[in-house]
């Protein structure tokens, strides 16, 4: 399972990297007279209402979805790691404050808030990444905190303390490296969540109209649901498969780390 899901993500990354090398940047935007053609040998995934090739759009959209997914998961992972480590290691008031904050995030309707922010502040990939990362770090922070609390009491942390190593060094060199496993598991789940959230935002027409992503093609598909099913089927399947791959990979990492699962 890990190989299939990991392999699929690697394949997508290759598509995302190779697309701008093999295609001219205008190709997915190229409008033509062949409007709303069903899938055929010439256009494998059909064409949209402006005569643009859906296959090219889907290939091009891979870039946005993957960049948003991976970068926001990375950013959320780093923020969560730092905040969670502080919370778990310092304890006391800082810990209580941080945990109450993450609780607030857990009950917020994240999508509505993200939609509100993007609608008001304006679209743009960087902004969307910032919003997704800014709203999804608490999950990681909670995981890191509980890991830090667990490891803090273990023998080797005690041993390091006896050797007179400073608390900060123990945290950075002993505890955090050992807490990284669960962070990776959570981060892959965050990536799946981010991809779905980005798709939802562009589906709601919240991304700028000059970028092509899977969600924006789906949004066109919603308008033309009765006439052009291919606009919805192909990009949606890819969103689904990508989120599935990240979720599966995350589950595999978690199971590999959990000794009880054997």
């Amino acid at each position: 399972m890990a190989w299939i899901s990991g392999g699929f993500v690697v394949l997508l990354c290759m598509v995302a990297v190779l697309a701008p090398l093999l295609l001219s940047p205008d190709a997915p935007f190229q409008i033509s007279n062949s409007v709303l053609l069903a899938p055929s040998a010439g256009h494998w995934f059909g064409t949209d209402d402006l005569g643009r090739d859906v296959l090219l759009q889907v290939i091009w959209g891979t870039r946005i979805s993957l960049i948003v997914g991976i970068v926001s998961a990375l950013a959320a992972g780093i923020i969560g790691l730092v905040v969670g480590a502080i919370s778990g290691y310092c304890g006391g008031l800082a810990d209580a404050m941080i945990m109450r904050t993450t609780e607030i995030f857990q009950v917020m309707p994240i999508f509505v808030l993200a939609a509100l922010i993007v609608a008001m502040a304006g679209a743009g990939e960087t902004r969307i990444i910032a919003v997704i990362a800014g709203l999804s770090w608490p999950q990681t922070a909670r995981v890191v905190r509980s890991e830090v609390l667990r490891i803090k009491g273990l023998g080797y942390a005690e041993a390091a303390r006896c050797l007179g190593i400073s608390e900060f060094r123990i945290l950075v060199f002993e505890i955090i490296p050992n807490a990284v496993g669960p962070v990776i598991a959570v981060s892959t789940l965050t990536a799946a969540f981010a991809i779905l959230l980005e798709a939802a935002l562009s589906f709601f027409g919240l991304t700028s109209s000059d970028t092509i992503s899977w969600g924006s093609t789906l949004s066109t598909g919603q308008r033309l649901l009765y006439t052009a099913w291919w606009l919805s089927v192909f990009p949606g399947t890819l969103i689904f498969l990508t989120a599935l791959a990240f979720n599966m990979f995350g589950d595999c990492v978690r199971e590999a780390l959990d000794p009880r699962s054997e």
């Binding site: 799946a192 789906l218 598909g221 919603q222 649901l225 099913w229 919805s232 949606g236 989120a243 599935l244």
Partner: peptide, 21 residues
């Protein structure tokens, strides 16, 4: 895995295409 990965708005579209259209 299905429940956590499927984009609900897309699932809705697919149902419409199949059962309504």
């Amino acid at each position: 895995l299905f429940g956590f990965s499927v984009p609900v708005f897309w699932l809705g579209q697919m149902l419409i295409v199949l059962f309504a259209v």
